[in-house]
Amino acid sequence: MRPFVRPSPMPGLSLSLGITLTMLSLVVLLPMAALLWQGASFGIGPMWDVIDRDRVWKALLLSFRVAFFAALFNLVFGVLLAWVLVRYDFPGRRLVDAAVDLPFALPTAVAGIALTALYAPNGLFGSWLKPYGIKIAYTEWGILIALIFVGLPFVTRTVQPVAEEIDREVEEASATLGASRFYTLCRVIAPMLAPAALTGFALALARAVGEYGSVIFIAGNIPMKTEIAPLLIVMQLEEFNYNGAAAIGIAMLAISFVLLLAINLLQIWSRRRIGHV
């Protein structure tokens, strides 16, 4: 039989694997197991009854739909931002570069309140948009903006180092072969950035699905309309309905797992294309 740990010239595998697995178990797997445990003791039938309500379905759909579009927006603009930061030198570049991380540092509630203040009908942008009948805060658009805000750094920060690695000569080679700038962008640069961009997309999506702090301020939380799934969980908890909270939590976990698995497969495929590195 092949030994579980194959001998390697690099020492320390069992030690580092041990530490890693212990940490992973303590920090990630145990809480998840507790969640599943709570659900299991509640029973599949009752759990389904909690989830299978119009209000919960609407909330789940809203959470994942808006998170998806926010991540999609971040994918496009995050890549663009990374490219601009890597390729062009302009006054204030370092400042912009540093500002990208701000959504990480800012408490999300602060972001939510700030965005609400701006986009509320009496806010700076909101009052300006109001005459045109455009309402941002307390609608899905408000949620979208909040999720875009919290997810922005992910794509930019994952793509940036990869963009830095791209050799200028590869682009020049493409041009000498007669390819237009656009063709080069689609056929040479995009495939090289794709795996990193997908990673960023997955991170931004995961972050947006679970986001709570900033959304509850700007969403207005109208049941069936702008009520996100994490808020429903909190509401169940406030009513001491731990089983109900666990049920919705497990539903979110299951959907997220399927989504992230799909993205991972897509990533493996795109990485194989640029593979053999």
């Binding site: 050799d167 000569e169 590869v170 020049e172 080679a173 493409s174 041009a175 000498t176 007669g178 390819a179 237009s180 040479v188 495939p191 090289m192 294309r273 640029i274 593979g275 053999h276 590195v277």
Partner: peptide, 19 residues
């Protein structure tokens, strides 16, 4: 422009498209 010149160019790093 580069594209119009139709000059076959071989770079020192070869600059092959690795994907």
């Amino acid at each position: 422009s580069v594209q119009q010149r139709r000059a076959g160019f071989v770079f020192q790093s070869y600059a092959l498209f690795r994907h």
